[in-house]
């Protein structure tokens, strides 16, 4: 997680500045029990957003779209995606492809061969032997 010193100082100065400007209003987040954003937290959120951006690029998302996609997430969502993208389920498609099904059946038969419940392939050796 590399954040340049320049960015860091920029973030801190901006957040300090906005705090001076609007410290007097009780925010909606406070009503909902979402704690106020400290400079440190703000920084963590920006890092999360950077992480999502980087992960999305690694996962092949069009770099032109990454910014818009991250921008429409709330801070909480961005941080969740940043930390859990590898384990989150991805809703995909209309079921298994034929190739997928063939591979799948192959794997099942391979396992049952190994378990000694079937003997489909010549190259398998059952654990029961």
């Amino acid at each position: 997680m590399k954040v340049s010193k320049l960015l860091l100082s920029f973030v801190l100065s901006v957040s300090l500045f906005t705090q001076v400007l609007s410290a007097q209003i009780a925010s909606t987040g406070a009503v909902l029990g979402q704690s106020a954003v400290s400079s440190k937290k703000k920084l963590a959120q920006i890092i999360s957003r950077e992480d999502v951006t980087k992960k999305f690029q690694e996962l092949g998302v069009d770099s032109k779209m990454v910014e818009a996609r991250v921008a429409s997430m709330t801070d909480e969502e961005a941080s969740k995606v940043a930390h859990q993208i590898d384990t989150l389920p991805a809703g995909a498609d209309a079921g298994m492809s034929i190739v997928g099904a063939v591979v799948f059946i192959f794997l099942v038969l391979l396992i049952t061969d190994i378990l000694g419940v079937t003997k489909v392939f010549n190259f398998t050796k059952s654990v029961r032997n």
């Binding site: 999305f56 690694e58 996962l59 092949g60 998302v61 996609r69 997430m73 969502e77 969740k80 995606v81 993208i85 989150l88 389920p89 991805a90 809703g91 995909a92 498609d93």
Partner: peptide, 11 residues
């Protein structure tokens, strides 16, 4: 998300 071949709930 091309590498995941689908969409996560948050997105």
């Amino acid at each position: 998300i091309p590498a995941k071949g689908g969409t996560v709930q948050i997105e």
